[in-house]
């Protein structure tokens, strides 16, 4: 069974399978269309969108905890931040879909490139615990293991200064769910009549979403911080099953405000 979050099934305590790993296996090792895995990912995507990233992802939690360490916080300039956000889509397309689907090795099995070279969640949840638990594996660790430890340390270090750098710039699963964010059943909405435009919500947003302009942005991880800080109670969220009714003074789906 695939669980909706980035996790490693090499973790000694794993009870589910990572959708990104399963997708690479279906494409690279079995070379067939991944009906089951893709269907599962789409189901979680359409029901929850990036709520999965905000409330369920264990590696997201690790980054959140690292960000609580009291060091000066960095605000990434928009000129760098905006283009960098597209990197996660390139990671999804390149390392998770195209390389496993198109590259053919001598054995006929294409390695899971994302898991092998990038995934820090795999290293934290699978690699390091396995090395601690299994002395025989320690002898096999080489350059690749060192590289992955370096990637993990770099992301953890960056998490202290920037909120969720992996989710913002690199996570292929976040990129996949981001495609569904605007029309998933779980939505955020802003009451324009109540909103005074104080922008407290935008200042508190860990993903730097322009909430008053685009509340259901593909970058919103539905953490609910904006809702908690809004003094007017203008932001709400929840499952919206019936969209045939007009929202009236509510604005959803990332539509631009008429006032601005």
């Amino acid at each position: 069974m695939c669980v909706p979050v980035l996790n490693c099934y090499s973790c000694p305590g794993a009870l589910g399978a990572c959708p990104v790993g399963s997708l690479q296996t279906a494409l690279g090792a079995r070379h067939h269309f991944p009906f089951y895995v893709l269907g599962t990912m789409m189901l979680f995507g359409i029901l929850l969108g990036r709520l999965v990233c905000g409330l369920l992802c264990p590696f997201g939690l690790v980054q959140d905890l690292m960000h609580k360490i009291p060091v000066p916080k960095w605000s990434v300039p928009k000129k760098i931040d905006r283009p960098m956000r597209y990197l996660k889509y390139a990671v999804l397309l390149g390392t998770v879909i195209l390389l496993p689907a198109l590259v053919v090795t001598k054995t006929g099995i294409t390695p899971p490139y994302f898991c092998e070279y990038i995934c820090p969640a795999g290293m934290l949840g699978g690699g390091i615990p396995q090395m601690i638990a299994n002395p025989a594996l320690r002898k096999l660790a080489g350059m690749l293991f060192s590289w992955k430890v370096l990637v993990l340390l770099l992301i953890l270090l960056l998490s202290m200064f920037i909120h969720r750098p992996f989710c913002r710039y690199l996570c292929p699963l976040g990129a996949f769910y981001a495609l569904f964010n605007r029309f998933a059943f779980y939505q955020m909405s802003l009451n324009e009549r109540k909103c005074t435009g104080c922008k407290k919500c935008e200042r508190s947003c860990p993903m730097a979403v322009e909430i008053t302009r685009e509340i259901n942005s593909s970058e919103c991880i539905r953490c609910g911080k904006c809702k908690a800080v809004c003094p007017e109670g203008a932001i709400s969220s929840g499952f919206m099953f019936n969209n045939l009714k007009p929202y009236g003074d509510y604005r959803a789906y990332g539509t631009r405000s008429r006032r601005r």
Partner: peptide, 29 residues
């Protein structure tokens, strides 16, 4: 897609992969 995948026994592939330690995934191999 999930229904088609289950009919094609794809869920067992996921299980087969999940019950083994993926050496590439942990930086070995």
């Amino acid at each position: 897609l999930i229904g088609t995948g289950i009919m094609k026994q794809e869920h067992t592939e996921v299980l087969q992969k999940a019950v083994k330690i993926c050496l590439e995934c942990i930086g070995i191999g």
